[in-house]
Amino acid sequence: MILGVLLVGCDGTDPGVETHLVIESYAQVGASLPEVRLRRTLPLSQPYGTDAAVVVEDAEVTVTMDGQSHAYVVAAPGMYRSATDLILQEHAELELEVDWQGHRARASTRIPPPLALDSIQVIPSERPLSGLILDSLFIDLTQIDTLRFDTLRTGATDGYVYLVEVKLRWQADATELGVDDDYWIRTELRPSLSSRTALDDYFLRPEQLLREANIPRNAAGWRHWTGVYAVPVEDSTVVLPQHRLRIALIRSTGAYARFVSGSDSPKFREPLTNVEGALGIFAGMAIDSLSLTIE
């Protein structure tokens, strides 16, 4: 056994005392140079809020666009802005450098062409539909071996929902996107009053992340996407409650897509960063969003 211990050695866990810089910056086409928000990581044992323990105010931030550097200053706790009044053009290449506590973090991105929602069609169901409201579909098979059925998280209640179908359309010019067409589209439907149900994860489609080249495009150059969200109601006689719906459409790079795809389950994974030497995201994007009143 002594031989064994000598062979396998110590097998400790990294306590993670090192602090990392966290960068958050989104450069939008048609806007000025992006704001850069800097935070730091904290050990697991500490509460994580928005206080001074989290923000970083002593860093040097520089953004270089098309070969010209622009220095940033602290505009608010943890928030850095450039005094330069430049408008970001599509296909512009941006590089970000942050120096903090002797470490340098770098990231780069490209500004995508702008996009605009050309058409929105909202189709609610004619009447409330009988449906499941809670997470009835979530049977955690990995917990079966515990033989503790009360932990299976299968509580099911039924109720009524309005299913609302939303069809989006936007113009996509292949030549404008560039030869690599490596852009991704993120869609989101965010109603103001429905509390999200577990149905969202399975049958509804309030958001989606798709490679733009894979979205069908008709002869006129339109791309379409259809999403579905649910509005729970008390019973089968209730009319569709009036509510606000925010519709958002983002075109961005593959780095942003990887960041988003890794951010949906914080208990199990973290978003993939495109920042060398730090965590977080620096991404160019085109955003169009719209708020509607549905009644």
Binding site: H20, Y26, L42, E188
Partner: peptide, 9 residues
């Protein structure tokens, strides 16, 4: 470690 990032949406 723990950290936070905000998505534009």
């Amino acid at each position: 470690a723990r950290y936070a990032v905000q998505d534009p949406l």
